[in-house]
């Protein structure tokens, strides 16, 4: 199901991330192509996966966004971000961001995301486009 990513899907992806990270032995950002099924009848243009060049966090005055609380603002700079009815999705340590806003002037390259309030430490950030291609990075909250 599109929209909020199901917990099963998330766990599967996180397991894949963990295995891949262990194999590569890196904490940097890297792209992961989704193993989404592709019918043979489908002629598809391959869209580049998103990439992340830089992630920075800054504290903000605690505030409610759509009924949820946020106390950090995270700026994600990279490339290949896009949205349809959904996405791009951003998850911090496996938790959906409270809010995700694409940069109005340069949406493909810059996002601002708000992690759930209280989340701290060196956490994983996953940006996932609506076509399920995703990229992982880390940020100190």
């Amino acid at each position: 199901m599109r929209g909020p990513v199901s917990s099963i899907h998330r766990l599967t992806r996180l397991a894949a991330f963990a295995a891949l990270a262990a194999a590569i032995g890196t904490a940097g950002a890297f792209a992961v192509r989704s193993a989404r099924p592709t019918p043979s009848s489908r002629s598809e243009t391959v869209v580049d996966a998103p990439s992340v060049a830089n992630v920075t966090a800054s504290p903000i005055e605690p505030r409610a966004i759509d009924g949820k609380s946020a106390d950090r603002e995270v700026t994600i700079v990279g490339s290949g971000f896009f949205g349809t009815s959904f996405g791009p999705f951003v998850r911090f340590a496996g938790q959906n961001a409270v809010a995700v806003v694409m940069d109005a002037a340069d949406p493909a390259h810059k996002l601002v995301a708000y992690p759930p309030a209280g989340l701290r430490g060196h956490v994983e950030v996953v940006v996932e486009n609506p076509d399920r291609q995703s990229v992982r990075a880390f940020v100190d909250l």
């Binding site: 791009p88 999705f89 806003v101 694409m102 996002l111």
Partner: peptide, 10 residues
């Protein structure tokens, strides 16, 4: 409505 299209969530 692209003027509010930057908002992914909410």
């Amino acid at each position: 409505l692209d003027v509010v299209g930057q908002f992914s969530t909410p």
